[in-house]
Design a protein around this nucleic acid. Structure first.
Lengths: 194, 194
DNA sequence: AATGCATGATACAGACCTGTCTCATCACAA
DNA sequence: TTGTGATGAGACAGGTCTGTATCATGCATT
């Protein structure tokens, strides 16, 4: 059975295969040979598209970061108030935790394996996390005065990071439920608005 | 300069050297050869004390988990009220984040590199995290009704996990400051009590 | 049909990995 | 003093790692 030559871009196919492996197996634990084997691609094809394994990792992270942003942008368009926007983000996390191939946060894991702040992978993680923090901050800026939005959005960010870790240990549903319970006291609104 | 033969147990020395390396470099990225070199120990000495690298990792995690418990036990004895106990835990995190060799949470990183729930390392992480969750839960049980203690302690746990991740990206101080700001609304007390 | 380029397949280099084995040495106890 | 067991030092096996090189093939456009 010959492999179907339908792939419009081998480059993108490699990125997506590597993403699945990094997520499930880890970065150091995933070898180049396995990436090219599951991509059905020659080794030189991979090295012609990416400068190195680290370069591929950065590209995978940027790809996922962009997908995340697009999804949240679409979600934000569906509702009007800050409270509802937070609610849709919590819905998104809940669905993510329930997805069968959930294995925790790709970015947090990258931080664990590439702890040097000067490493390109580390910087890619910082970019994504800061971008998400700013998104939460902008949402809450419309709901409360600036100093409260600062601490509330930071708290929300930390809650979501902690929930992702709990989800990896099998307590994702409970984690989101508890966040929903405490969010009203954080953003000063009755529970039913989110 | 000969290495001092003062070590009462080589086993413990290996555990502590491996701990420092795993924390700074990572689990897969740290080779056995480097552990024994920096331990000034023969390879067979290591393999006579530990069944395998994974076994050593589990031992390191258990060692650090126990140290953490002991430190928090001591802290808890110094103050009386739940609010103050939470305050001392936040103090502990603040000092941890400021320590010069802070590199994030050893257990969270282990979860990132050993994502299989059946793996001994994964189980060791689950044990430590659950133990800490129960500690927070017991503290808050003395301060509020059971259902609120459940969600508040879970939230506090998630906040601390998120703060640890932020600390690894250089925002630890700000993270703890923001937790202190939102904790009163979580546990229903004026800010000055913690 | 001819040409040029991306690709597949595979070998290869050099390094590193975990774990086992051997042997000389040293401390200590009987 | 003699024996016993832990240790240091290092070779070794078998495998895997990243990254490079080589060569044949297939596809598309000219």
């Amino acid at each position: 059975m010959p492999s179907p030559p339908v792939s419009p871009s081998k480059r993108q196919h490699i990125v997506e295969t590597a993403y699945a492996l990094f997520k499930r197996v880890g970065y150091h634990a995933t070898g180049i040979d396995r990436i090219i084997a599951e991509s059905n691609v020659a080794k030189m094809t991979m090295y012609r598209n990416f400068p190195s394994k680290d370069g591929l990792i950065v590209e995978v992270l940027e790809y996922r970061a962009q997908r995340f942003e697009v999804q949240l942008d679409r979600l934000a368009e569906t509702v009007a108030t800050p409270q509802l926007k937070i609610g849709t983000i919590l819905d998104w996390y809940e669905r993510w935790f329930q997805s069968p191939d959930f294995h925790g946060c790709l970015f947090a894991h990258a931080l664990a394996e590439f702890g040097d702040p000067g490493h390109p992978v580390f910087r890619a993680v910082g970019k994504q996390k800061n971008s998400f923090r700013q998104r939460l901050r902008r949402i809450l800026d419309d709901a409360m005065p600036g100093d409260r939005a600062e601490s509330a959005s930071a708290a929300l960010f930390m809650l979501l990071e902690g929930a992702t870790l709990l989800a990896q240990m099998g307590h994702g549903e409970e984690a989101v439920r508890n966040i929903r319970k405490v969010v009203p006291s954080l953003i000063g609104m009755p529970a039913k608005t989110q």
